[in-house]
Design a protein around this nucleic acid. Structure first.
Lengths: 352, 352
DNA sequence: GTGAAAGCGCTAACAG
DNA sequence: CTGTTAGCGCTTTCAC
């Protein structure tokens, strides 16, 4: 009703620019989005005026009309976990490349919180990347019906997924230990709900069967440094010369626990982790680990999502599988039966 | 022109719900936003129908009208840096508490990228938290005119700021070293552009003057592990018994560099970092550090921003200053002049 | 307690 | 090449 636009504080609209330039709003709009279809001079003049006025197109209005916000959501199981840093970074870079902005939805390790966060943001985003989601398959499928969606670190049949080739990684890890003379190894399990844990453990069992190795599983343990520390208690009752941990956090904790016990790494026990997160190269000895392609994981997921948003058919077939790389540091060494046995002799806390 | 709404795939709108319920759209709208002003039965019926249809209000349309998106942007200098994990986490939690969603803008350590990311998202957010921004004061002020804004880890006069009390933290660090008998210390500087670096160094100089201590500054060095490693080269030409590093990343790298040289920590050199990031407790020896209240920093900034968005007057007076806490681990110990001298005797690479 | 109607700022037809 | 116009889906007066 009130005709006085641009009253005072509120930002200038396209109408204000049009009026100032003496052209129609559509011309202003075109001057920005399709410069080719406007007289070059006019376009330049409009742009000058617009920038002088401090005009910026209102992305909300545009999105309401076009249905595109150029924002994608990245759901993360736990922002605190260094594992996700690489993923976030890769995703962010790919998003920027494609002209998208990233909305971060932290699940805080909770199914409910993840759902709520996504529920809030789903209306504002063009697509979703679910990372190590805690949601059920059916909940994921429901979301996928609302928006293009891609699943990271989990396989959901019928949806586009990007995963790491844990099986191959485990094969490399075992080969490395075998070369060092180890024939018996303990797997320190992570959370049972974790997709990666079941894949890794199953792969280890199969490989052990193939090669005639002895494997033993302890856990489950929380996928944290603390979880690794406590795992040592369980381990010492039935020690082995080599330990493969669910992930680096657990491995790092395990290393700490061993040190507290006075056990030497790798002389008494060899330890391997998974992922190659920040910190694994800083501890002493450095942690040997099966590196996940973290940044590539994030970037691949985003790129595929952006393609889907752009109209490409979603890759609902086999999941995209990214390769691992074994990073050998100081925490693995030759098997020495006597040292191992001595280190964990009941009651002993003495080391080298 | 086409009357066929709800044609096929597109989500139901408020009109669809209104039609299905046989009421006016305004009634549907009220049923959600002001349940009190609608007949209770009717409201319940409408909500039932809406949920059955899978209706969800379009946040874009709402935002276009109300001018509120319930999204805030968090600009981060470098997502890769573990320093920011705690801040992100605290910010995220506070945002959720207040009913906001967080948009992450990664600056990738670049003034330009930061500006671009913010430019893209500024239209979609109700407010902005700038963390360790690389932008100039004037650029920051310009942004602040567009949206409520809060500056983290830097003081910009006239804008609301949240910072850590580095001065006090440095005082604690020096007190700790002094108690251990150190009277001479080296400061390993971070990037010159970093606000925290200048504050920390200046504080150290003042404190040293007060107490009659000898301080020496080397650098600047990149605020990374690699930066710390290379700093050792410079340090060994003029060693001291105690080192205060710009931050934990540098300190961690410094520790590595010392180990490579065969120097013992803390017997030959004591090392202190700043921030207490992930990893400082995992290295051997653990890093003594001046802990920053990372989560509190993020949460405080967001809470203040949300208050401002809600109409509270922005706190443009003195910056909010949050306290540090000295975390003593194994990297600091008593001063031993001879050990230090011996460890860095020119050409020597042998340790204790 | 409910309905009708006017836009929020923008873009995409459709005419000229 | 440019102008006119009809909405995108929602909330908010203003009537009844």
């Amino acid at each position: 009703m009130v005709e006085q636009r641009n009253g005072d504080q509120r930002p200038p609209t396209i109408y204000d620019v049009a009026r100032a330039a003496g052209v129609a709003v559509s011309t202003v709009s075109r001057a920005f989005s399709r410069p080719g279809r406007v007289n070059a001079e006019t376009a330049a003049r409009i742009r000058k005026i617009a920038s002088d006025m401090g005009y910026r197109t209102n992305p909300l209005a545009r999105a309401l009309l076009t249905g595109r916000t150029s924002v994608i959501a990245l759901a993360i199981a736990d922002i605190t976990n260094p594992y996700y840093f690489g993923i976030i970074r890769g995703a962010q870079a790919a998003a920027i490349d494609a002209g998208y902005t990233m909305l971060l939805a932290n699940a805080q390790e909770s199914d409910r919180l993840e759902r709520e966060a996504l529920d809030r943001s789903i209306g504002m985003v063009d697509g979703i990347v679910l990372t190590s989601t805690r949601m059920s398959d059916s909940a994921i499928r429901k979301m996928a019906r609302l928006r293009p969606l891609i699943v990271l670190n989990r396989v959901v049949v019928g949806l586009p997924c990007v995963v790491t080739d844990h099986r191959h990684g485990m094969r490399e890890a075992v080969a490395h230990l075998t070369e060092l003379g180890h024939t018996s190894m303990t797997y320190v399990a992570g959370p049972e709900a974790a997709w990666a844990d079941s894949v890794r453990w199953q792969a280890l069992r199969e490989i052990a069967a193939e090669r005639g190795l002895k494997v033993h599983r302890i856990g489950p343990h929380p996928p944290t440094v603390a979880g690794g520390v406590t795992a040592v208690e369980q381990f010492r009752t039935q020690p082995a010369g080599a330990v493969i941990a669910y992930n680096d956090m657990v491995a790092l904790g395990f290393l700490q626990g061993l040190a507290a016990l006075g056990a030497k790494v790798p002389a008494d026990v060899s330890v391997i982790g998974f992922d190659n997160i920040f910190g694994t190269e800083l501890v002493t000895p450095g942690l040997t680990t099966v590196a996940s392609p973290l940044q590539t994981l994030g970037a691949t997921a985003v790129r595929q999502l952006v393609a889907t948003i752009g109209g490409a058919p979603p890759q609902t077939g086999d999941p995209v599988m990214l390769p691992t790389r074994l990073v050998i540091r100081g925490s693995t060494g030759p098997f020495r039966r006597r040292r191992t046995a001595a280190a964990f002799r009941s009651g002993s806390t003495a080391g080298g």
